[in-house]
Design a binder for these strands. Structure first.
Lengths: 272, 272
DNA sequence: TTGCTCCTCACGTCACGTGAGGTGGC
DNA sequence: TTGCTCCTCACGTCACGTGAGGTGGC
């Protein structure tokens, strides 16, 4: 069997800490070649160095021990690469998330400490519109939103009807509270439009609303929601009813995120 | 004091889980405005919504609770921004690390499963050189390496002496085992060169060496080290003495990482 | 009585690091 | 005897999530 290496020697040769080696033993990732039955001393052999290197390499690359086990036990290169690819995809996802986070932090710093949002009270009259109403999962919202407005736009083009106001949407409270609920995407129109598929005529009900304008990246709209929600809650003026968003300028209009404007409208007790 | 909100209501309003709210109470980050002494029920008030939003926002951005506490307690915008900047810098560091990881994983997949490294045995004769020898911390190695060779190159230019071979370095085993040790950077020369500052004449001692060539990014050289170290250890032919690196092609010669070539040389018992 | 909301433990997560307290051989 | 290396618990990390088991009011 050749040389036996104490855990200290093996640690120095592999740059894995003694504690880590004990841990790998404990979880069965890398068992010592031999254990002294009297003293409990662990002994390793040089033939274990390649496995130790694989462990160290992939730990450095952020791979969890379970997957390293899978790499070590992979019967061939394809199986091994499958595990590596899966890990790489997770790391890429994390990369994207961190990039978004950094961008968000940067905008937090650059925004001139917006202070309390400006909230306007408004009495909205009923409005005629073409609309799509469906039950939507929170997670699917973004895609659903894009599809719905693309379809509404297409119908208006096809029928030659012109929009009588900016696009808007209504969200039942459940969408925010239970991750799924009824959503209506709509475009105001002056007259009737023949329904087609899931598109219907719809009359947006009148309402008393507290309105805040969100400026900038859509990804940050939760801030405006939070600020407006707080405004309403602190004044105890909230009433039941769907939340509305009015899309003054969005990605459908311009690529320039800084120019985006969305009105967030919260139903309230009375326009003061 | 206005409305009292149960933990469930407050959870729905803030999108913070009930468990999270209890946790924030426990660690003193967000204390309920009131606690029923009989039932232990927690009650919140709308005035706590802004703090809850700050917590949620920064948690989403990966900030630890301790720093969120600092943000909430910051006396002014500058103090607040300081915490945010510090966090952003950590996130950016993480970003860079993840990018390197993904690149490394990709190269692992693209490299055609190199298999065991090719190891050549070599009898190296003593060689005359100009050299800088110093005690170096593992963490400082890269910068030290660059400075040393820049200085050696400058001296050769200044004295009109031509290099008689590729740049090389000797690393005492302690550099790898204890994070600090003696390192020698050298350039072979045919004759004597007047010493200047920390630059000395030096004769690289002869040695029996096992040699593996590392190709590609310097950041991956630990793989070649590992492979060669394993080769030597498994054959039990290692002897004491510094490890050598011979810089056939490096960043000092070309920007093209794929073209880089470094010989890693391990002292062994005999050239077989 | 059934449902719903709230409560308090207690444990798990992930990969070790940090002691504490003790042993065996030079 | 002193140092060094090895050992085994046991606990901490970080921010909760996941039960278990129980209560109070409609």
């Amino acid at each position: 069997m050749g040389v036996k290496l104490s855990i200290g020697d093996f640690s120095r040769m592999t740059h894995l800490s003694v504690k880590a080696l004990r841990h790998y033993h404990e979880v069965g990732l890398l068992e010592p070649a031999q254990i002294d039955p009297f003293s409990g001393y662990r002994f390793y052999v040089p033939a274990q160095l390649p496995a130790a290197q694989v462990i160290r390499r992939f730990r450095d690359l952020g791979m969890p021990l379970d997957q390293i086990r899978a790499v070590l036990q992979a019967p061939d290169v394809e199986a091994r690469n499958e595990v590596i690819v899966a890990h790489m995809q997770r790391m890429e996802a994390q990369l994207a998330a961190t990039q978004a986070t950094v961008a968000s932090l940067r905008s937090l710093l650059e925004r001139p400490a917006s202070g309390p949002v400006a909230v306007e009270h408004r009495s909205a009259a009923p409005v005629r519109a073409v609309a799509i109403t469906e039950q939507v999962l929170w997670a699917d919202l973004e895609q659903w939103w894009l599809d719905a407005f693309t379809e509404l736009d297409a119908i208006l083009r096809a029928t030659g009807v012109r929009a009588a106001g900016p696009r808007a949407a209504l969200f039942a409270a459940e969408v925010f509270e239970q991750e799924s609920g009824e959503v209506t995407a709509l475009v105001p129109v002056a007259g009737a439009v023949p329904g087609r598929g899931r598109v219907r005529d719809y009359v947006v009900p009148g309402a008393e609303l507290a309105v805040a304008v969100h400026r900038g990246a859509f990804a940050d709209i939760d801030q405006t929601y939070a600020a407006l929600g707080t405004y309403v809650a602190e004044r105890e003026i909230g009433v039941d009813g769907p939340i509305r968003e009015v899309y003054l300028v969005t990605s459908l209009d311009t690529e320039d995120e800084a120019a985006h404007r969305i009105e967030v409208c919260w139903p309230v007790f009375h326009a003061k």
